[in-house]
Amino acid sequence: MSDDAFTFAPWNPEAAEETGYSHYSYWRSTFRTFIKNRLSLTLLIIMGVLVLFSLLYPVLASVDPNKVALDSSLWNRRPDFAHIFGTDGLGRDIWARTWYGTRTSILLAFTIAFFDVGIGVVAGALWGYVRKSDQIMTEIYNVITNIPSTVYLILLSYIMKPGFWTIVIAMSSRGWITIARFIRNKVISLRESEYNVASRCLGTPLNRILGKNIIPFLVSIIIMQTALTIPYSIGAEVFLGFIGLGLPLDTVSLGNMVNQGRSNFMLYPFQLTWPTVILAVITVSFYIVGNKFADASDPKNHL
């Protein structure tokens, strides 16, 4: 070992500064971490295709999901070429009904998730930031979470007429509070955390603190809550259909199809099986993709 093996680097103030800066981009890292996982990428694609297909189905195909066959030989047909998933007790095409139903359920679930998360995030941020609101909000939280969810859903479905917006209102007027609670806990712990105090001391402007230090942490919760609200809402619609308070029976929805298929299951199992498979694929993919994306959007899991 001698000094010949090394050459001294010339002192360069700019180069010295460069080590303090990385080309780290939050969204790029999140995305890279996410697509690294094969399973979540596959499910994301499947989910995207299913959602897109169900939304576009009324444009792509001209089969009327409510068209009743008068000829009884067309009732309860097993799956064949004309009817890929077979027909139900009134000769309606189950393939078409499945996609219309998926569409209704997805629209319903997205609407609920939109309100739940929208109200939840705003309320949660205020709850975390405005200290005076803590006691009132905690009491509201206690009250809402102590009314059994079935009581609440059923009561509201009774007071209003069963329908799309009734379910949306019933679900979101209750669902926002749990999301708000999550956000509140996170905001409180972030607000007082040392790196934020340090940032503030160094004179970082508020919008930069919010954008770079706080929102990335909240994003993972927001995305996960959105993704988990969707299977939950779809399940709730099926449940409400089960107790007879779901969407009106002439609306094609997965909940209604599952409940109709259930009563014919002994004789015609395919009437339940196929809509159920589609339903399960959608809810499971949302669940997994939501969880994986939440993992990926947590900066601690990057690199």
Partner: peptide
């Protein structure tokens, strides 16, 4: 268990 509607 958590993602598929329990009724099914």
């Amino acid at each position: 268990v958590r993602a598929i509607p329990s009724l099914i």
